[in-house]
């Protein structure tokens, strides 16, 4: 059963993304695209002529996608949370290398920003994992999911996670890595056709990755987890529609100033 979920993971993420596009359009008082629009886009991209800059650039995107898929699979299989975070870091590094490997200014700028984003959110993710460990005594997701709800013991950590969710799903105010009006998509700019498809789908997997962290806060009650995910999903989209994009430096300041200190205060609270 788990394996079926793993295989279907990109599709699941695609549905979330499609739903989000509809939701966003409705929030902007538009009709918006159909729910299945991400899949139409996917199929169309498969049918384009493929133009590449050079082979490593194209292949790194493929590698990024598969490592990310592997990460999501590891989440479904209930592995060690720290391993999962580092696997995800590895996937990001592949992407960043891809961005750097071409002599394209926007791609480089995108990779720079992506690196800054990694530096910003990675410590918070680890702290969230440490928080789970302190309560449940294990980094294994299967064990974490057996504990009862974490959010009343780790409320500030939950807030910290909330702050970094927009970074991961590339939503305002933290969509600096993509920033269409500035760097035209950043790393993804030089991709087309099938290879862009991989990046397009890895966005779906990112959704699953970060929302599964939210889900973990529900603990043994899957209903609570689902409610939390739905709530965060709505909140993130609301914020997306009510904010402009901040600077990269501001993002780092916000994440280190608020998210990190919330997380530390919460963990110290648990410890002392």
């Amino acid at each position: 059963m788990t394996w079926i979920w793993i295989v279907l993971a990109p599709l699941l993420g695609g549905l979330i993304y499609g739903g989000e596009r509809v939701l966003r359009a409705r929030m902007q008082r538009r009709q918006g695209p159909p729910l299945l629009q991400p899949f139409y886009d996917m199929f169309k991209l498969l049918d384009k002529r493929t133009l590449i800059l050079h082979a490593p650039h194209a292949l790194l995107a493929v590698a990024h996608f598969f490592v990310l898929w592997f990460t999501v699979a590891a989440i479904f299989l209930g592995w060690n949370l720290i391993y999962i975070i580092f696997l995800h870091l590895f996937a990001q590094i592949l992407l960043i290398l891809a961005g750097y490997s071409v002599r394209s200014v926007y791609s480089h700028l995108g990779a720079n920003r992506e690196l800054l984003m990694v530096v910003a959110y990675e410590p918070v993710l680890i702290l969230v994992a440490v928080g789970f460990y302190l309560i449940s005594g294990s980094f294994e997701i299967t064990t974490i999911l057996q504990g009862d709800g974490y959010w009343h013991q780790l409320p500030l950590l939950f807030v910290a996670l909330l702050i970094i969710v927009p970074i991961k799903v590339k939503k305002s105010p933290f969509d600096i890595g993509e920033a269409h009006q500035e760097i035209v998509g950043g790393i993804e700019i030089e991709y087309s056709g099938v290879f862009y498809e991989f990046l397009y789908m890895s966005r779906f997997l990112e959704y699953l990755f970060i929302y599964s962290f939210v889900f973990l806060f529900g603990g043994e009650s899957y209903w609570l987890g689902a409610v939390l995910v739905a709530g965060v999903f709505l909140l993130v989209n609301l914020v997306d529609n009510a904010t402009a994009r901040v600077h990269a430096a501001d993002m780092v300041k916000i994440v280190y100033g608020f998210a990190m200190s919330f997380a530390i205060i919460n963990i110290l609270g648990v410890l002392l």
């Binding site: 590449i52 082979a55 194209a58 200014v105 087309s192």
Partner: peptide, 15 residues
């Protein structure tokens, strides 16, 4: 796998 990529066409980066 780099060798297998020969069949794809190349373009210039977007500037």
């Amino acid at each position: 796998m780099v060798q297998k990529m020969e069949r794809y066409d190349r373009i210039q980066p977007y500037h």
